[in-house]
Design a protein around this nucleic acid. Structure first.
Lengths: 349, 349
DNA sequence: TCGGCCACCGTAAACGTTTACGGAACTATG
DNA sequence: CATAGTTCCGTAAACGTTTACGGTGGCCGA
């Protein structure tokens, strides 16, 4: 005898009553409930998930979909762990568990999602590494499966998403660099699938235009969002005839490679070139410390969770005013990598 | 009408036959099977996971348990993503899915595991961040739940585990440094819960003893396994009256902080002090490039998967000679951070 | 005393699969 | 033709839970 039957037999009451007692139903005597809870605790009973979800069509599990292999996201070591932490802080209140759905780099993400959803694996989903055109969004929307994406795409109109405020970052950084005399500013962007690149570069262009400056094509650098990519960008940048005096790095992990690329050519950030990047745990330990944009990833995780739950009928009431579409602001952390003024129009030969 | 019933109705055959056809049972006409598979594909049918696992008591899911928040493991996303990649390469052959079971930093890992297991969540488990005394091992062993741990502990006798070869790393590094004339070598270790610290430091001590050298207590540095920890170690190390001439860093992410701590005091790795660490994607981009120990995390993931499956009756036959207890060798990647000889016994004042 | 209401509990039917079992049709064998 | 064996398929019982429904007993008011 196993499961709830064992518990019921042990207490000499029916399994229906046991279930009602455990699930907090009102129509059960408080004394009985106490006995049930006590026995469940003592016997280590936990309801079987398959039986429960088969019956009620719900899993109490939320999936955070991500892809394995590190080349794709390029987000730093601690990025997801911090986001998870925030998500769980919210989920814990509702007895929801969070699992990371790991899509192999071999498999098409949409196929994977299809499989996961059809199996009835999770009640809701958080999608990361959103592509510019992402079929997953349409797929989930068609089936009325609760989800929220971390990252905008072109096809998410009316769908819940949160994103980092890359436009704000572009605006602030460009204004700051221009105010310090920079006229030729290099910007980076990841591969073409990532919407972030378009959003970021477009705003950089606008911000420069507001100062009457162009964004020349040769100053837009494309790379893999990892250390090696940063190194390559530095090499390409230094090879230009008319070198930029500043660089704005949109990815987290590329700064360290970028620094190294500069260093090998004897170019020092903060003295020979201004560098602004994204925060990561090592940003402060670079030489010189990186001026960068930081945000609370834990808070972002909390917001993601609240946004998702606000789209789910069972939890909607708890989060009436959750954000549905929002960019998450980043604050500028002053390092020493952008601390010099350009005197005049031509700064280098 | 949903699920397998819909499919059966559509084909005008019984659900039993449909199920048998889909599951590759022999007692079904090949023509029928073809029709079923074709219809399933066209209607997008996928068996409901709850129903299936309720009936057969199996989930086709393997959980990789890890804790959110980064303070504990000190291993970055890139570490686990690479391991996942290897694990999935094996699981894909058996139609197994991998999910990351994310234990909140708020919750006790053993409590979490208890919940997950009792719910019948996964057929098998991979445990990471194993503690020196880890109750999870006993818990799983008692219940005959297939598992393998990544990392040894004191209480895993007879249980399957894989680990990095920290002893080999200690031996090679110490021998190398001693051969280059170093007599005072600093070593690092993480917090007291991690078994790795004991394994590593003990072997360092033995290796030194083989050369007739002591490992002085003041040369054993304890820190959090992150960038800040590395920085603090550098500060403490430089504050010693009798400075070591070499440092051996056992964690991945601390090198960058360590470098910065040295740099602020004008001490340069590879010239003023020899530094040997662990590989990470940025090791090559430090100045000077870090001499470090590297391994293929993907291969480690493959081995983890094979080890786990070899303990599961359903897959045992496929992996007769899988490793059960093994340390995973690391290779030395020569950088420039340990490239100098100490001439004489006293190297610094 | 009787009917009605309430608090509590037992019964049994679902949820979607898999699979043991038996039976129907057909083939082979004597 | 009878029998045995084979191939295929339908039936129905599980798996463990939740929950609609109905029933029992007690209490209260008329």
């Amino acid at each position: 005898m196993k499961g709830i039957r064992r518990l019921a037999q042990h207490l000499d009451i029916s399994i229906g009553t046991v279930s009602r007692a455990l699930n907090g139903r009102p129509d059960v005597n408080e004394e009985t409930r106490r006995r049930v809870l006590e026995a469940a605790e003592r016997l280590g009973y936990v309801a079987n998930q398959s039986g429960r979800s088969l019956r009620q069509g719900t899993t109490n599990i939320i999936g955070f979909m991500m892809q394995t292999g590190t080349e794709i996201t390029g987000q730093g070591d601690t990025f997801f762990m911090s986001v998870f932490d925030g998500v769980q802080a919210v989920f814990a209140r509702h007895k929801l568990d969070l699992v990371a759905l790991l899509c192999s780099s071999e498999e098409d993400p949409t196929d994977y999602l299809r499989r996961v959803v059809a199996r009835g694996f999770a009640d809701g989903l958080i999608l990361s590494a959103t592509r510019r055109h992402d079929p997953r969004i349409e797929f989930l929307a068609e089936r009325n499966i609760p989800f929220v994406t971390l990252g905008r795409s072109l096809t998410d109109a009316g769908r819940p998403w949160l994103d980092l405020d890359f436009e704000g970052m572009a605006q602030i950084a460009i204004d700051r660099l221009v105010a310090r005399g920079h006229r030729r500013i290099a910007v980076t962007r990841p591969h073409d699938d990532a919407n972030l690149g378009y959003v970021f570069v477009d705003r950089c262009r606008e911000a420069l235009a507001a100062h009457g400056l162009p964004l020349e094509e040769e100053l837009i650098f494309r790379s893999t969002p990892n250390e090696t990519g940063g190194y390559q960008i530095a090499r390409e940048l230094l090879a230009l005839k008319d070198r930029p005096t500043a660089a704005l790095l949109v990815n987290e992990t590329i700064a360290i490679g970028f620094y190294q690329g500069l260093s090998e050519a004897g170019v020092r950030p903060g003295r020979d070139i201004a560098v602004i990047g994204r925060y990561s745990p090592h940003a402060h330990f670079l030489s010189p410390p990186l001026t960068c944009f930081r945000l609370s990833l834990r808070d972002l995780g909390i917001a993601l969770a609240e946004t998702l739950l606000s789209t789910m009928p069972a939890f909607r009431d708890h989060y009436p005013q959750a954000l549905v579409n929002a960019v998450w602001p980043m604050e500028l952390v002053e390092g020493e990598s952008d601390g010099f003024l350009v005197n005049g129009d031509e700064s280098r030969g």
